[in-house]
Amino acid sequence: MNNVVLRLSNVKKTYRSGDEGSLPVLQGVDFTLHAGELVALVAPSGTGKSTLLHLAGLLDTPDEGDIEIAGQNTRGLADAGRTALRRDQIGFVYQFHHLLAEFTAQENVMLPQMIAGVRKAEARVKAQHLLGQFGLAHRVKHLPGKLSGGEQQRVAIARALANNPVLLLADEPTGNLDVRTADAVFDELLNAVRGQGLAALVATHNEELLARMDRVMTLRDGKLVERVQP
């Protein structure tokens, strides 16, 4: 396959503290993610899952190694270039929805589009369409505080997809939901990823979701390795 969306090559990251010295977290990660591929990241807390996602999402920079997004090497890329790549190519979903409380569901999905230069009317239509896909056509005018947990997370996923990213990064996207709601939300996330041909890297502790993934990766001794499924 040559449709590589994310490539990590010998990525290393160490956190340093004046009192505690240094803590190596990632020690030479190599990983390739293709369009249309859904990969799970499963590892114990404190092993570097969030660090890896932050690096892949250009929210942090590695000490060593290369990170390529859609064929573009980000090494040495200026802040403006990194911001543009995040905005145009990457969608993020977190355990907590992080919706803006003073804006409606529709406005939350419109905002990233408008930041990217999309006209307000066009952004509104796109937001209504996405929210409708997630069964929220009747909730577009509601503030986040008036939505259930599952509805809030659906809005967050719609927002992540608003700018047609090529890469979706999700950190425990259903970890804050009850089992039944988590199952339904993950089904919708999976359908969206498959339908749009995105590359998705999803950190999760939910073992029941793993059978639906193309691959399952884990962190071992600071390196990313494929976990053999039973």
Results as ranks from 00 to 15, higher is better:
residue 3 N to I: 03
residue 4 V to N: 06
residue 5 V to F: 12
residue 24 P to F: 04
residue 27 Q to K: 15
residue 31 F to Q: 05
residue 32 T to P: 01
residue 38 L to F: 06
residue 42 V to R: 13
residue 42 V to M: 15
residue 42 V to W: 06
residue 44 P to F: 00
residue 47 T to E: 10
residue 48 G to P: 00
residue 49 K to D: 04
residue 49 K to N: 03
residue 59 L to S: 00
residue 62 P to S: 12
residue 68 E to F: 14
residue 76 G to I: 02
residue 78 A to E: 15
residue 81 G to S: 12
residue 83 T to M: 08
residue 83 T to I: 11
residue 87 R to H: 08
residue 90 I to Q: 04
residue 101 A to G: 02
residue 105 A to W: 10
residue 110 M to L: 05
residue 112 P to F: 07
residue 114 M to T: 15
residue 116 A to R: 04
residue 116 A to S: 10
residue 122 E to M: 06
residue 122 E to R: 12
residue 123 A to R: 09
residue 127 A to G: 05
residue 128 Q to V: 01
residue 129 H to K: 14
residue 131 L to P: 00
residue 137 A to I: 11
residue 137 A to T: 13
residue 138 H to N: 12
residue 141 K to I: 03
residue 149 G to A: 02
residue 151 E to K: 08
residue 151 E to V: 08
residue 153 Q to N: 07
residue 154 R to Y: 13
residue 156 A to R: 01
residue 157 I to V: 15
residue 159 R to S: 06
residue 164 N to M: 02
residue 166 V to Y: 04
residue 170 A to V: 07
residue 171 D to N: 02
residue 171 D to M: 04
residue 172 E to F: 07
residue 174 T to G: 07
residue 180 R to Y: 11
residue 182 A to T: 03
residue 183 D to K: 06
residue 190 L to T: 08
residue 198 L to A: 14
residue 201 L to C: 00
residue 212 R to H: 05
residue 216 V to A: 13
residue 220 R to F: 07
